[in-house]
Amino acid sequence: MMGAADLNIPVRMKEQPLLSVRDLGKRYGQRIGCRGVSFDLYPGEVLGIVGESGSGKSTLLSCLAGQQRPDEGRILFDGTDVLALSEAARRRLLRGDWAYVHQNPRDGLRMGVSAGGNVGERLMAVGARNYGVIRETAIDWLGRVEIAAERIDDRPSAFSGGMQQRLQIARNLVTGPRLVFMDEPTGGLDVSVQARLLDLLRGLVRDLGLSAIIVTHDLAVVRLLADRLMVMKSGHVVETGLTDQVLDDPQHGYTQLLVSSVLQV
């Protein structure tokens, strides 16, 4: 595990926040999905959202990423009200400035389309019409996520789980999004593959200056990737702070429980 000192925490509080969320809430009938969530995400910053199953972190992420419509609250992306956008503009955002990495790569990939086609899809969606350029870009991105260039014409179904997840990441980042949503990006992978993926993600996030929101129940993932942490329980945010601060000195009882539950090897 890397030490805390290795992480450059960008302190850019004077900048405009990239994403600004105020009092976000979502109910499923009587039940609360999440409630009263507010935070600011600055350019280049990675926010981790942790909590146990059913704590509302996935609900929150799907509301943020525009997959569900929240019942209350406001979301500002780069100064524009996301919830007030037309569907066309919202979908343009989804294939341009935003990216969404699913927990299960099968949800985020087209399994019947070759790796190159998967990576190229977003490019073609934003207007690329030159096969040679699309292919070159796809090869470049496969290289960046450590997939051999000769696998470009293979379908994802012929890939291992870790490769599929890396392919999904390449597919999402190829258009240079500014904000990436990740839902348990390492879920379902074995530990050595997880470590490689985390290494890769950390490199990409830092090189590209991405802002990201990562939902996970794996504290090791946020320790490595996240600058700041938000701990959720029963749909509410119970604690926020710098990652190391929260993990090393948890204040809320639930966070203390969470941190102490991590198995030590």
Binding site: E87, R95, S114, G117, G120, E121, M124, I134
Partner: peptide
């Protein structure tokens, strides 16, 4: 390429035809 009718109608509505090119891309790649 997209089995959902709701989705294809939406794609026509919003002129999202990138997927059509994915098919042509696959043709050339293969």
């Amino acid at each position: 390429l997209e089995p959902r009718e709701t989705e294809t109608r939406k794609m026509h509505e919003l002129e999202e035809y990138g997927l059509m090119y994915v098919k042509l891309y696959e043709d050339i790649a293969r």
